[in-house]
Design a protein around this nucleic acid. Structure first.
Lengths: 338, 338
DNA sequence: ACTTGGATTGGTAACGATAACATGGATGCC
DNA sequence: GGCATCCATGTTATCGTTACCAATCCAAGT
């Protein structure tokens, strides 16, 4: 027996409780001043009526949505997922909710997504990376809310930044590889410029080799991002055929590095004795695989946590100028390299 | 030079274009009847003013949010991510946007999340799994929107269902393992009942063994979910110590199966000659690892796609009674088993 | 010339909550 | 006791868009 009538509103709850709608509204907030007694009466009346608080009305009137908009390249990437989870955990304590979208590693898609997200009037917007279309930059600048760029250190930040230099992180690995004697070092990454962090990593690789007086002819393009295990395996196959004397390879992520490792295993090529492998991102697989992967920990969760902290500070008015949190990635040496 | 004035509204755009606000509203919709000329004039005036459409007002007045609420146990799980991505891709073509939350494998958390999501007035809500608190069930039933339970086949569905039987899927693997001669078969899964799909898989495992006249004493609890690679490796260690004569082990997911595999590799135990391993979920790692993992493909993306289809049909009024889409998981035999 | 009908545009009120201000009563302090 | 203060609650107007209905215009048909 289900009446098909309009769902109850605060006015209905108010009537039933014998108070004004305003009091009902207050009862549903955490901190507003309502007597304990009244609050309980209101809430139980609401429960009886099956009342569900209507955020849409609240959002319009109060000009607050308690949304934090977030864009990531892919929803299916453990690094970004870690960042989002940490971010979500921290801001949800304050009643803020993540509104997530993914760009598929495409700045045009990112622009569309940013526009769509801004229409929802979030309290702040977090974007992954520091490269955007001009219109996206403009939209973000004019949004009138805190903008946080992450996973990168843009030269001209739009607002706040919580990130690290992808190029420098890879350079650290190159430096180490050269210091232990590797000279013929290759890089496996995505095509062209879609994944801007991947592109930065490759650029860092080339620059680092150059500083050691080494050329970088061994660049393997593994296809359009996302570059995952399968692409890594294929790329390793190409590398072994085109440059069989390669001594070490740095991959754009642990996923491709693991794929590359398995290709070596399939071909009976000893890792690291015949070829060393380095990854990026400190994914769980790198710690567990046999042999375990040398990699770079970019502290994905910490990026999320720091971003949350920054957002809360800005919303509390505790920070009036653009914040810049620099994460220092860590080189983790494991079994796939010396 | 940044004026701190109120952001422009449709009224401002209307004034500048020399039309009524109503016409501006129409120009921002896809199909409304406005002349091409007028629409372009409105849109360019909007761009000049830096006008951003305000969904919050639209949502309230039109009583539509174009949100599809989705709950998943963990944001960091490739299976659920695949489902959400497919779902998102299909519904976004119709202007619908995913509003995602995660429950951390906890029904109490799920209840809180469902309540929070429903306040946002989504057009439909998709939940993972078929086990909920009584209050969560009630909230969903009374929400007045389509409810879709996924990744499970609940006995008493709340509304629509797009899923499969976790127990039957595992049974298929058990049947195969028995048919090729394994008898001493173990199961690695999470503690107790938090991950209800994991629990169903274990129950299916026990029931299947029983039907073959076999006992199931080899149940290894790998800790609270999520059970990932590390937990799988630890559990395999326990298994090898407590039941060294085990011939095969079925793991609650490919992640734990891979962890288990690596533990064998570390201990020099031959897979599958000394012990066979089966996983669940057909994660990429299972196809790439050496040896590759025998697993069950539950068609995560297809669940998302079918869910999207179902939602669109219901919203279009093409489906008036509860839909039930049953996915048939596929046993994939690879190198970790006969 | 006059009606008919489709296409385009406008006017008005309303969605359901809450910000801002007001009020009545209890409490505290000198 | 008198006045300031605080607490709990009420009143009114409003957030920005769009549903609903009305009006206008022009082309086509009789």
């Amino acid at each position: 027996m289900h009446n098909i009538r309009k769902p109850p509103t605060m006015a209905d709850v108010a009537r039933r409780t014998g108070v004004s709608p305003m009091t009902v509204s207050r009862a549903f907030k955490r901190d507003s001043s309502v007597s304990q007694e009244t609050r309980e009466a209101v809430l139980s009346a609401a429960e009886e009526l099956g009342y569900v608080f209507d955020s849409t009305a609240s959002n319009l009137r109060s000009q607050r949505t308690d949304f934090i908009a977030v864009t990531i390249p892919s929803i299916n990437n453990a690094n970004f997922a870690d960042t989002v989870r940490a971010l979500s955990d921290h801001v949800s304590e304050r009643g803020l909710q993540i509104l997530l979208g993914y760009t598929n590693y495409d700045v045009a898609e990112e622009e569309r997504l940013i526009e769509q997200l801004l229409r929802r009037k979030p309290e702040a917007i977090v974007v992954t990376g520091g490269k955007h279309t001009p219109r996206a930059r403009k939209l973000l600048s004019n949004a009138g809310i805190p903008v946080i760029e992450t996973w990168d250190l843009p030269e001209e930040p739009i607002g706040h930044v919580v990130g690290f230099s992808n190029a420098l992180a890879v350079r650290e690995m190159v430096d180490h590889f050269v210091s232990v004697g590797y000279r013929k070092i290759a890089f496996i990454g995505g095509d062209a410029d879609r994944d801007t962090r991947g592109t930065d990593r490759r650029a860092g690789f080339i620059a680092a080799l150059k500083d050691h007086g080494l050329d970088a002819p061994r660049l393997i393009a593994a296809g359009p991002p996302p570059i995952s295990m399968r692409e890594g395996a294929n790329a390793m196959g190409q590398l072994l055929e085109r440059f069989p004397d390669t001594e070490a390879v740095i991959c754009v992520s642990d996923l491709s590095a693991f794929g590359a490792l398995t290709e070596c295993q399939r071909r009976g090529i000893a890792v690291p004795d015949r070829i060393a492998i380095g990854g990026f991102g400190d994914y769980e697989i790198g710690a567990i695989s046999v042999p375990s992967l040398t990699t770079i920990n970019a502290f994905a969760s910490e990026i999320g946590a720091k971003t949350a902290e920054l957002i809360l500070d800005v919303l509390d008015g505790k920070l009036d100028r653009p914040g810049r949190v620099t994460i220092r990635p860590d080189l983790i040496l494991r079994q796939t390299s010396r």
